[in-house]
C-alpha cells in the first residue's frame, strides 16, 4: 500500500479495492459497513438479474447485487474467495457480491484521474474516475449507481 497521489497536500482517503472478473474497482471505505463471506441468497421474484436475492444480516434483510452482472460482465459464479461487501448508501444497506477483495488503498482525491473516454456503458454509468496503482488501473465505483431498483410493476 502506498500513497499514489501527489504530495500530502490533499486529504488522504482510504478505498477498498476488489476484483470483478479481470478488472479492479474500488469504493470509499467510509461507505463500507463490513465485508463478509458469500452465503447463498434467497431469490426474489421479478427481480433484475443482477439482484441475486436477499440474505440475513443480523436480523436485517439485505439485497445482494452481483456487481459483475450489474456491470454487464456476466453472472458471478460464487467461489470460496467470493465476498460480500456490505455498503450503506443513505438509509439503504446493500451487499455487493465481488470475486475478491484485493487491497486497501490510501490515496487522495487529487490523484484521481478522469475516466478514460471509452464508449463502454460500464465506464459511463458506474465509474467516476480511475486511480493508477503500480501499473494497475483501479476504477472508482459510484455507489449510488449500482443500487438495485425493486421491480415494482406487477406482471
Amino acid at each position: 500500500m502506498q500513497d499514489v497521489g501527489s504530495p500530502a497536500n490533499s486529504a488522504n482517503r482510504e478505498f477498498v479495492a476488489f476484483r470483478v472478473g479481470s478488472q479492479e474497482f474500488c469504493i470509499d471505505i467510509m461507505g463500507v459497513r463490513e465485508i463478509r463471506g458469500w452465503t447463498p441468497a434467497t431469490p426474489l421474484p421479478h427481480a433484475p438479474t443482477y439482484v441475486r436475492g436477499v440474505i440475513n444480516l443480523r436480523g436485517a434483510v439485505l439485497p445482494i447485487v452481483d456487481l459483475a452482472m450489474r456491470f454487464g460482465l456476466g453472472l458471478t459464479e460464487p467461489t470460496p474467495r467470493s465476498v460480500i461487501i456490505v455498503v450503506q448508501v443513505h438509509q439503504q444497506v446493500v451487499g455487493l457480491l465481488v470475486d475478491a477483495v484485493s487491497d486497501i488503498l490510501t490515496t487522495s482525491e487529487a490523484s484521481m484521474q478522469p475516466t478514460p473516454d471509452v464508449a463502454s456503458d460500464l465506464a459511463k454509468n458506474f465509474v467516476k474516475g480511475v486511480y493508477a496503482v503500480e501499473g494497475r488501473m483501479i476504477s472508482i465505483v459510484t455507489l449510488e449507481s449500482v443500487l438495485p431498483i425493486a421491480a415494482k410493476v406487477a406482471a
Binding site: L44, P45, V61, L62, Q92, A150, A151, K152
Partner: peptide
C-alpha cells in the same frame, strides 16, 4: 423488504 430493497409483487 422495503427498508433496503422495495416492494415485490406477490
Amino acid at each position: 423488504l422495503e427498508a433496503n430493497y422495495g416492494t415485490v409483487s406477490g
